[in-house]
Design a protein around this nucleic acid. Sequence first.
DNA 1: CGGAAATTTGACCAATTGATCAAGAATTTT
DNA 2: AAAATTCTTGATCAATTGGTCAAATTTCCG
Lengths: 221, 221
Amino acid sequence: MNDQPNADLGNGGGVRQRSRASIEKRILEAAESVFAEAGFNGATTAEIARRAAIPKANLHYYFNTKEELYQQVLTGIISTWLHTADEIRADAEPASALSHYITAKIELAREQPIPSRVFANEIIHGAPHLGKYLSTELRAWVDAKAKVIRSWIAAGKMREIDPKHLLFMIWASTQTYADFASQISAVLGRDQLTPQEYKAVARQVTEIILRGCGLTPPAQV
Amino acid sequence: MNDQPNADLGNGGGVRQRSRASIEKRILEAAESVFAEAGFNGATTAEIARRAAIPKANLHYYFNTKEELYQQVLTGIISTWLHTADEIRADAEPASALSHYITAKIELAREQPIPSRVFANEIIHGAPHLGKYLSTELRAWVDAKAKVIRSWIAAGKMREIDPKHLLFMIWASTQTYADFASQISAVLGRDQLTPQEYKAVARQVTEIILRGCGLTPPAQV
DNA sequence: CGGAAATTTGACCAATTGATCAAGAATTTT
DNA sequence: AAAATTCTTGATCAATTGGTCAAATTTCCG
């Protein structure tokens, strides 16, 4: 039953565990990039093993199935996203909170586009591997944030808009720079945006959303 | 060389051609849905044939390779999209033109989400089957529309914004309702949005974008 | 050291899958 | 009618691929 080798053997947590953690990380990073490029179906364990520079059989020693590997990649992505909107609280100023959220999301799209693409791919295909996450955890998260935004509206701090669809719009407008980067690059005619361009994008998206909500964008940093 | 059976034989364009067109359409629709659900790699010609209700060997009679089938699906999608922004012209009013464009895109997301997902999937994976379309045709399209928007700005009709990133934002905010429908459904807790909800979405996205551009949303229809 | 546990690895397997082929059925043309 | 062309389809193939296995090799610990 216990298919986790080295589990709970009291070996002192020495070199083995450190090495194990590091090789698992290498495998997960390789898997991430392959899943992002080819999707779950197109990804092959052989290619993941190649990028992790280990034999395929060794990969299956650390992760029993491709499914298990994919799950861990997804889990990692989700946990990264859970706390990007911490500033969206009832006692915060909407303009500042939304501005920070949008900026953080654009930065994430720049710094970690690959996990974002794995997740987007999963959603596009109907989220067959995500189980109930969307309709439980994420839904609760959105409900909570929507409540905060509604409190801002009730306090007369911003225009009356549908909070959930505002969130969808922010997600879409920011993650498009990770998920659809190849399209944006091709259309703009360059390999990738410069950090300055990302800043300009964050500023423009923020301005449009905030003005659209009847808010005044904060002065630029 | 000519692997198109029945091509140019002067048979009068009778039953054969009509039947051929209809079966090809059935195959393409089946392919569309399978590609949308599983991506290029995950799609199997067997499943496409099953949905088209023909033997797999017969499918390969009409479309030699899976790649050819995919190309035709993509081509169909692209041609559908080429003329959705015809109202974005220099002599149009920005508020009206953008409003119509956004509304049309949301309607397309509602009516034809499947082709949109096939395309989105292709982009996410780096557009390996799209050839130079993005960097030639689509880029030229965007350049032209950006020029129009810049003329509106120069005429003092709207706030100074980056036209291309505005277009990206409109694409993202509208297509998210096709591409990420499973996420939106799960978060909102219902199978699919009602036509009324789509209308409300179009209204809200339009309002936010227009106000964000310093425009006044037109009165609702 | 020396036995036990953990790790590595090449060889291998069963299932899937894109594509082919040949034989026959249906349709059109002469 | 019969020859020619188009269409249909079951059988089959070669390649790919997720996963297994057992035999080494290494590491750990008394």
